[in-house]
């Protein structure tokens, strides 16, 4: 399920003045992309952004209060490949400054309280292991007891292989949590960003009352490489892009980053 080859785990943004678009492959002046909320001016592809940028983009300034930051991963299988999973975790904790691949907390959107969870793709490709699953469960429970809408922004390669079957079970765990929230009549909005795959799409991410995707985001169950190898044909143009999902009826809408907060505010107003 974690189909990303190692070189893909990091978003490929060459350092320096220029940046190559992951979609149209144009080389663009970095400053121009940055002042445009990391959106390609040529094709509207939305680059990955940091957790801090994401929170700033979606919530009222200074309203975010992180919760469950005291949960840390460990290595239940004593998994090792070229590196021990333990050491791999330490490296990612050092490079990202976060304990794992998911941050959650409460905040407001135009004054309305929400519970927000955000994936950090830079932490092991945003893969979902026990910590991510537990934090999603707790965010959902926070939403359940406060009745504030739950918003989860996904960017993930899927389940975290290094935690084996336990990471697979996070799919059931998070889906169960969303089902309970749904029965309580509390809204859940799922936002899919580039890329979202595997065990994340095949659980809570596709279970939103409202599902929103960012333009050109790659979203699917099986990674494009796996599909290509299976069918032994070239994939059709635009396969698994947000526009493809919209066309096939899998998501409610595609929303540009600069319109995201307003759209959320509108949706939340509807739910009261």
């Amino acid at each position: 399920m974690a189909w990303f080859k190692r070189e893909d785990r990091k978003i490929k943004i060459p350092e320096g003045l220029w940046i190559k678009c992951n979609y149209c492959r144009e080389i663009i002046y970095r400053k121009e992309v940055e002042k445009n909320s990391m959106v390609c001016p040529k094709c509207r592809y939305h680059f990955g952004i940091s957790i801090e940028e994401r929170i700033a983009l979606m919530l009222d300034e200074g309203s975010f209060k992180e919760q469950d930051s005291n949960i840390y991963p460990f290595d239940p299988l004593t998994f090792r490949d070229s590196l021990k999973y333990k050491d791999r975790l330490k490296n990612y904790q050092k490079s990202t400054g976060y304990a794992d691949a998911f941050i959650s907390g409460e905040g407001t959107i135009n004054g309305k309280p929400v519970i927000l969870g955000v994936f950090n793709f830079k932490f092991m490709g945003g893969s979902m292991g026990s910590v991510v699953g537990e934090k999603i469960l707790r965010a959902t429970e926070a939403s359940f007891s406060s009745r504030s809408p739950l918003i989860i922004v996904s960017a993930s390669g899927g389940a975290r292989m290094q935690e084996g079957i336990l990471s697979l079970m996070q799919m059931a765990k998070t889906s169960a949590a969303i089902a309970r929230l749904s029965e309580a009549g509390v809204p859940y909005i799922s936002i899919l960003t580039d890329p979202t795959f595997g065990g994340v799409t095949a659980s809570f991410a596709m279970l939103g009352d409202i599902i929103i995707a960012e333009p050109k985001a790659l979203i699917g169950f099986a990674g494009p490489r796996v599909v290509e190898q299976t069918i032994k044909q070239q994939l059709p143009e635009g396969f698994q892009r947000a526009e493809f999902l919209l066309e096939h009826g899998m998501i409610d809408m595609i929303v540009e980053r600069k319109m995201l907060k307003e759209t959320l505010a509108q949706v939340i107003r509807f739910f009261g």
Binding site: M171, A172, S175, A176, I178, A179, S182, T201, A202, S203, F204, A205, M206, L207, G220, F221, A222, H248, G249, M250
Partner: peptide, 11 residues
């Protein structure tokens, strides 16, 4: 919608 179908079953 493979992903959505699996997700719906879990739900």
């Amino acid at each position: 919608g493979q992903a959505g179908a699996i997700a719906r079953n879990l739900f």
